[in-house]
Amino acid sequence: MHGIYNFVSGPLVWVSFILFIGGSLYRLISMAKLANEKDQTVYAYMDFHYAFRSIFHWIIPFGAENMRKHPVMTLVTFAFHISLLGVPLFLCAHIILVKEAYDISWWFLSDSLADAMTLIVIASCVFFAVRRRVLPEVRFLTSPSDFIIIAIVAAPFITGFWTYHQWIGYRIVGILHILSGEIMLVAIPFTRLSHAFFFPFTRGYMGSEFGAVRHAKDW
C-alpha cells in the first residue's frame, strides 16, 4: 500500500499536472490557431474593454438578469465555484505538503472553514445531480457523461472530507483522494470542465460583439 501511495503521490502528481497544464495549453493554442484559420472575425471583433465589461457582469453574483431569475442556482453556483477553487488551493494540509517539498507556503483556510466549504462542494454536486434529474429542461440536455463529470468533481472532496475526519479506511480513501484529484485535473482540459478556461473567451467574445459592434448589453 505504501508503494501505491508513493506512486500516486509522486510520479502521478507530476503526470497529472503535466497533462492538466499541457492539455489546457494544447486546447487553448489549438483553438486559437483554428480560430485564426477559420474564424478570423473572432480576432477582428475581440475588444478588450467590452470583453471585460461582460465578464465582469457575469462573475459578480446576481450581476446578470438570469442570475436574478434563479437565485438558488446562482447562490449554489457561486458558493460551489468559490469552494471548488478555494479548498484545494488554500487547504492547510495541501500547503503543508507543498511546504515540506519546496519550502514555499501561503495563506490558508481554517480547517473548519475548509470543512464547511468541502461540504458546500459536495452538497452542490448533489444539487446539480438532482437538478439534472428533476428539471425537465436540464434533464433533456443531460447525458450520462454529465453525471460522470459531477462524480469526477465530487470525488476528491468526498474522499478528502473522509480522510480528514479519519473515518474508517481513511488510508485507502486518502489514496483515492489523491487519485481522484488527479483525475479531475486531467479531466479539465479534455471534458466539458474545459468551460473553466473557455469561459473568458466565449463570454468575452459575446461581450465584444454586443458591446463594440452592437452597442448593447449582454447580461
Binding site: 483554428l34 429542461e137 436540464v138 440536455l141 466539458r192 468551460h195 473557455f198 469561459f199 473567451f201
Partner: peptide, 21 residues
C-alpha cells in the same frame, strides 16, 4: 466553414439549461 467558434461553443456548453428562459 466552421472552426473554433462552433467547437468551443459545443465543448463549453455544460448542459445546464440556464438559457431556456
Amino acid at each position: 466553414e466552421t472552426g473554433a467558434r462552433l467547437k468551443v461553443y459545443v465543448d463549453t456548453c455544460v448542459h445546464c439549461g440556464l438559457c431556456s428562459e
